[in-house]
């Protein structure tokens, strides 16, 4: 396979993407709850990064890549929400047996989070993963970008498309929520 010359050398794009791909996948997996969707999101982000920012200096690559990744994750959530609204409309349109039922309540969580899945996560020692998945998307993004990827507040704000104040609020709430959810499993 022939790659463009960006891949060679220590500062090559290939090396950079290799250094972030596993964490990017893990973030996308937390957000989507589905391995296939997560792989699609990461591949889209890689392609967009190579297309637009491959020539950027090494120090700018990481925040740019995670900005693209978070945009792709937000797009995925928007599409899922639209799909869910259509499904709710169809279900409501053809439902005749129980007129009072709320069709939205019957729909699956866009992140694939079910009570059974949350229980399995907990039982297999992945209580932390289950707790991160249960965070609202904005808190989840703020927590993973700040605490795991160690982006600055300004870089995180750019990646999330919000103010620095919002990043601090989302991050603080995420930490409190995680500590509360994990108080029995974690010290």
């Amino acid at each position: 396979m022939v790659f463009c010359n960006r891949t060679s050398g220590s500062g090559g794009v290939n090396d950079f993407l290799q250094s972030v791909e596993k964490r990017a996948y893990q973030m996308a997996h937390f957000a989507t709850g589905n391995p296939e969707e997560a792989l699609d999101v990461v591949q889209d982000a890689m392609m967009a990064f190579v297309r637009k920012y491959a020539d950027k200096p090494e120090e700018e690559r990481r925040p740019l890549f995670f900005t693209i990744l978070q945009n792709r994750i937000r797009d995925w959530h928007r599409r899922q929400n639209v799909r869910n609204r259509w499904n709710a409309w169809w279900v409501g349109k053809f439902r005749t047996d129980d007129e009072d039922a709320d069709p939205v309540q019957d729909l699956a969580d866009p992140r694939g989070l079910t009570p059974e899945k949350a229980l399995t996560d907990s039982a297999t020692g992945n209580a932390l993963h289950g707790a991160i998945r249960r965070l609202p998307l904005r808190q989840q993004q703020a927590f993973l970008l700040r605490s795991w990827e160690e982006l600055s507040v300004a870089e995180t704000a750019r990646a999330m498309g919000c103010s620095e104040g919002s990043v601090k609020t989302h991050h603080s709430r995420a930490v409190q929520a995680l500590r509360e959810m994990l108080k029995d499993e974690w010290p």
């Binding site: 790659f3 290939n14 791909e21 990461v42 890689m46 392609m47």
Partner: peptide
């Protein structure tokens, strides 16, 4: 594979 696909010219 995703990385190779992204880097293919």
């Amino acid at each position: 594979q995703a990385r190779y696909a992204a880097l293919e010219p």
